[in-house]
Amino acid sequence: MTPTPRVKTFRIDGRDVVGREDQTVLEVARENDIRIPTLCHLDGLTDIGACRMCLVEVQGWGRLVPSCVTKPEEGMVVVSQSERLARYRRTILEFLFSERNHVCAVCVSNGHCELQDLAEEVGMTHVRVPYRYPGLAVDASHGRFVADHNRCILCARCVRVCGEVEGAHTWDVSGRGIQSLVITDLAAPWGESDTCTGCGKCVQVCPTGALTEKGHSVAEMSKRRQFLPYLATMREGRR
């Protein structure tokens, strides 16, 4: 039997907050209306600490830590907003915008995109690093969905929702480093995937216009995620 999680009192941005030790700093921050930017995090999916947007400072700790996977500790002092963190968050967004071809103006997800929203939120008005302009494919082989790798930020939400919630594990990441690519099955066209159930969860959790439904024009694709907290709650309940 697992012991009952204890309750911890700590501080975020000068405010006293209370969290259970099995929560994360991010969860506790949100409960207290303290906004920490996130990108790869999505309620209901396992956190992987990959996007580094939610990095926070903890007094006395040498390194910045991702709040999405950091557990509360008694008396810890967390800083979620600082000049330094703001600079890092901006640069990380610049990295993402420069990595692939994010042409917001003609994107189906224009106006409904978490990457776009974050740039506005953290005041990232331009990208100082050179754009990389990779030549990337658009996979429209699926009957209902499109995968546009030009817009993908490799947050792996699709990989996680497909594996953890739908249980199909159609999506995974191939290649490494800057050559990484989300793939269906063993890099087969999406439409030919044997494992894809066509549930569309990957599309709905995708933060950008990388995975979208067909039949949408510019700015028409907004995502519906209502199903996720329900499924996640049910899954938690089963445990």
Binding site: I48, G49, A50, C51, R52, T91, I92, F95, L96, S98, E99, V129, P130, R132, I153, L154, A156, V173, G175, R176, G177, I178, Q179, S180
Partner: peptide, 21 residues
């Protein structure tokens, strides 16, 4: 480092590529 980055986190995946350039 750029070639060997796993690609999971943004700063290493994209940052090493920019640093290399």
């Amino acid at each position: 480092s750029m070639a060997e980055s796993c690609g999971k986190c943004v700063p290493c995946r994209v940052g090493t590529a920019h640093l290399y350039d």
